[in-house]
């Protein structure tokens, strides 16, 4: 398996378009950081205008931790798309260029191939998150320094002490890894059904967008299904910026994401194992 995984990663990281994802992530982070360098103070003033009359907020509010939090919010949709670009291409892309039949004439079982593709997609997603951590957290801290972090919510704000923030980011990135693993498994499942990668990539994003709307719209009709949707739990990383941290809720979300991931991968293996390869 390790040998096959190395081959898969070699293919992914020797394809120029793989690095587009890393460039896009960096570009988004840089744009937000530049905007905040130019006009961050007025943004913070606007964001805190409701509470500044009751509270006297002092110190470096516009710090690297806050900027990172803002970047993470904007990347909620982008990162799943970038993960889907690779995972959705995993099997459908091979079918499209005609190499799937070549791979399957080698002594590799179909479940093995699906698992290798999934693992490689997860490794890619983790590296993308690591890159995000470097360009968002690392560079923001370099540019803006550190300080107590204000976590903004719709009806409240949480003030986190400077020394109590960094571990929360590490935990949030680890949780985001789980969420991206779930996205990768969904894209891989859809990839099994297609012979070109556009379909699975667009379908993955379509499903995530529609289910995110179900998860976030506070309408009674969606309330019953919302707790069961994986998109509801993908934003569980935000819990690490609450005080106190809602560990029960975060664990629950992590378990749901793992169950979905397992179900998507298992279904992908079953379907792919029965499929006639005609590409």
């Amino acid at each position: 398996m390790i040998r096959l995984l190395r081959i898969e990663l070699y293919k992914i990281f020797h394809r120029p378009r793989t690095y587009i994802s890393f460039a896009i992530t960096a570009a988004i982070a840089f744009v937000i950081q530049l905007a905040m360098l130019a006009d961050g103070k007025s943004f913070v003033g606007f964001a805190l205008q409701g509470v500044s009359e009751q509270f006297d907020i002092k110190g470096n509010v516009l710090n690297g931790y806050l900027i990172t939090y803002l970047i993470l919010q904007t990347l909620l949709i982008h990162i799943p798309l970038l993960v889907a670009l690779v995972a959705g291409d995993a099997l459908a892309g091979e079918a499209n260029i005609g190499t799937l039949r070549l791979l399957l004439t080698k002594p590799v079982t179909r479940p093995q191939l699906v698992l290798i593709k999934f693992t490689a997609s997860v490794v890619y997603a983790m590296l993308l998150l690591l890159w995000l951590a470097v360009v968002a957290l690392g560079l923001s801290v370099l540019l803006f320094g550190t300080g107590d972090m204000i976590s903004l919510k719709s009806d409240a704000f949480v003030m986190l002490l400077k020394d109590d923030v960094l571990w929360r980011y590490f935990a949030a990135f680890a949780f985001a890894g789980l969420a991206m693993m779930c996205v990768a498994s969904l894209a891989l499942l859809l990839s099994v059904f297609a012979d070109n990668s556009i379909g699975p990539i667009i379908s993955t994003m379509g499903i995530i967008i529609v289910l995110t709307i179900f998860s976030t719209l506070q309408l009674p009709i969606f309330d019953t299904i919302s707790p069961y949707l994986f998109t509801t739990h993908m934003i569980g990383w935000k819990g690490f910026f609450d005080s106190p941290v809602p560990y029960t809720s975060i664990t629950h979300s992590a378990v749901i994401l793992l169950i979905y991931t397992f179900a998507f991968v298992a279904t992908a293996i079953i379907v792919f194992n029965k499929k006639d390869i005609q590409s």
Partner: peptide
């Protein structure tokens, strides 16, 4: 099988 399709970028 049919065509010798491979990884063109490699």
């Amino acid at each position: 099988i049919e065509r010798p399709d491979m990884y063109g970028y490699l």
